[in-house]
Amino acid sequence: SPEVQIAILTEQINNLNEHLRVHKKDHHSRRGLLKMVGKRRRLLAYLRNKDVARYREIVEKLG
């Protein structure tokens, strides 16, 4: 489901952010981070168009 995919991506994004705080010059990982953020944004847009209630619920849960 989109909610699960968004939750997994959010966790991976948070982990990668911590990694990049330590390894500032790791541009390869930064590119992966940007791809993940874009994918999460697309999934959220899809969910917002399909079911606003589910969209609001996941945004509330994940912050």
Rank of each mutant, 00 (worst) to 15 (best):
A45C: 14
V52R: 13
V4C: 14
L43G: 00
S1K: 06
E3C: 07
L20P: 01
L44M: 05
R40W: 07
L47W: 03
A45M: 10
R31S: 09
L43P: 00
I6L: 04
N17M: 15
H28T: 10
D51K: 01
N49Q: 13
S1N: 09
M36I: 09
I6H: 01
R41C: 15
H19D: 03
D26M: 04
R40C: 09
Y55D: 01
R31I: 11
N15E: 12
A7T: 07
S1A: 08
Q5D: 07
I13R: 00
N49H: 13
L62M: 09
D26P: 05
K50D: 05
A45F: 05
R42C: 12
D51V: 02
E11L: 08
A45Y: 05
H19I: 06
K35Y: 09
R42I: 11
P2A: 12
G32T: 15
L33K: 03
I8P: 01
R41M: 09
D26L: 04
R56E: 12
A45D: 12
Y46N: 09
R48C: 11
I13V: 01
G63Q: 13
Q12K: 13
D51C: 05
D26K: 10
G63E: 07
E3I: 06
A45V: 08
H19C: 08
Q5K: 07
H27A: 10
K24I: 09
V59A: 04
L62K: 02
R21K: 12
H28D: 13
R30F: 10
L34F: 08
K39E: 14
T10F: 03
L9W: 03
N15F: 13
G38H: 13
K61A: 11
K35G: 06
K25M: 11
L43A: 02
E18L: 10
S1L: 07
V22Q: 10
Y55F: 08
S29V: 11
L34R: 11
N49Y: 09
Y46P: 00
R54H: 05
T10R: 02
L33H: 03
R31P: 03
K61P: 01
Q5C: 09
Q5I: 12
Y55A: 03
D26G: 07
L9P: 00
L34K: 12
K39P: 00
R31Q: 07
L16M: 07
L62N: 02
Q5E: 10
H27F: 12
A45R: 10
Y55P: 01
D51A: 03
K50Y: 15
I8R: 11
H19V: 04
K25N: 13
R21I: 07
E11P: 01
G63T: 11
R40M: 12
H19T: 04
E60D: 07
V52Q: 12
R54S: 06
L9D: 00
R21L: 06
R21C: 09
V22I: 13
V37M: 13
R21T: 06
L43V: 02
Y46K: 11
L9T: 01
S29K: 08
E57T: 05
L47T: 00
N17Q: 13
G38P: 00
G38A: 14
A7K: 08
L47R: 00
L44G: 00
L43H: 01
D26T: 05
K39A: 10
P2L: 15
K25Q: 11
N49D: 11
N49C: 14
I13K: 00
K61L: 11
E11V: 09
H19R: 06
K35V: 11
G32Y: 14
T10S: 05
N15Q: 13
R54T: 05
Q5R: 09
I8W: 14
L33D: 01
V52M: 14
R54I: 07
H23I: 03
M36Y: 05
Q12H: 12
K50F: 14
L34T: 06
R56M: 15
Y55T: 02
S29L: 13
R21F: 03
H27L: 09
D51M: 03
L47E: 00
M36V: 05
G32P: 06
Y55V: 02
E60I: 10
M36H: 04
A7H: 09
E11T: 07
K50H: 14
H23Q: 04
R56V: 10
H28P: 06
K61Q: 09
I6T: 01
I13P: 00
K24S: 12
K35H: 08
L20I: 08
H28N: 11
R30K: 08
M36Q: 03
H28K: 14
T10E: 04
H28E: 12
E11M: 12
S29G: 09
G32L: 15
E18K: 08
Q12Y: 10
V22W: 09
M36C: 05
R48A: 07
L62T: 03
E18S: 08
L62Y: 05
Y46I: 14
N17E: 11
L47C: 02
M36S: 04
N14F: 07
L34I: 12
G38M: 15
K25S: 12
G63C: 15
L16V: 04
R56A: 08
H19N: 03
N14P: 01
L44R: 00
V22A: 12
K50A: 12
K50N: 12
R41T: 07
A45N: 09
K25L: 08
R21N: 06
Y55H: 04
K39N: 04
R48K: 14
L47K: 00
Q12G: 05
N15I: 13
K24E: 08
Y46D: 15
L47P: 00
K35S: 09
R56D: 10
K39H: 07
L16R: 03
K39M: 13
E3A: 06
I13E: 00
E60M: 09
R56W: 15
Y55C: 04
H28C: 13
N49V: 14
E60F: 04
K25W: 10
A53L: 13
E3T: 04
E11K: 08
I13N: 01
R30A: 08
R31M: 11
G63A: 14
V22M: 11
E11W: 08
L33W: 06
R54P: 00
L20C: 05
R42D: 06
K35I: 14
Q12C: 13
R31Y: 06
N14W: 05
T10I: 12
D51T: 01
D26A: 05
R21A: 07
G32K: 15
S1G: 08
A7W: 15
I13W: 01
R40Q: 08
H23W: 03
I58S: 01
H27N: 09
K25P: 06
K39Y: 07
P2W: 14
Y46G: 06
R54D: 02
S1H: 10
L16N: 01
K25C: 14
A53M: 10
N17W: 15
R56L: 15
R30E: 06
H19S: 04
L34C: 13
L9A: 01
L16W: 08
G32V: 15
N17S: 13
N14I: 10
A7I: 15
I58T: 03
E57L: 05
I13G: 01
V22S: 13
I6R: 01
E18P: 01
E57N: 05
K50I: 15
R41V: 05
E3G: 04
G63R: 14
E18H: 09
Y46V: 12
E60P: 01
G32E: 15
V52C: 14
G32Q: 15
V22P: 03
D51W: 03
R48P: 00
K24R: 11
L20N: 02
H19G: 02
R48S: 03
V4F: 09
R21D: 04
G63I: 15
L43F: 03
H19A: 04
L20Y: 04
E60R: 12
I8T: 07
D51Y: 03
I8Y: 11
I6V: 04
P2C: 15
V59Y: 03
K39G: 01
R56I: 13
R42Y: 09
E3W: 05
K39V: 10
H23A: 05
L34G: 05
A53D: 15
H27Q: 11
R56T: 11
A7D: 05
P2Y: 14
L44N: 00
K24P: 14
V37I: 14
L33V: 04
D26W: 03
P2N: 03
L16P: 01
K50M: 14
G32W: 13
I6G: 00
Y46A: 12
Q5N: 05
N17H: 13
N17V: 15
D51I: 05
R42W: 08
V37D: 02
V37H: 07
K25G: 13
L47V: 04
L33P: 00
T10W: 04
I6K: 01
H23L: 03
H23R: 04
M36E: 02
L62A: 02
A45P: 15
R31H: 10
A45G: 07
V4I: 10
I6E: 00
G32F: 14
A7Y: 12
R42K: 12
L47G: 00
E11I: 13
Q12F: 09
L62C: 05
Q12S: 06
Q12L: 15
N17F: 14
G32D: 13
V4K: 10
L34A: 11
G63W: 14
Q5L: 15
I58C: 07
D26F: 04
R41A: 11
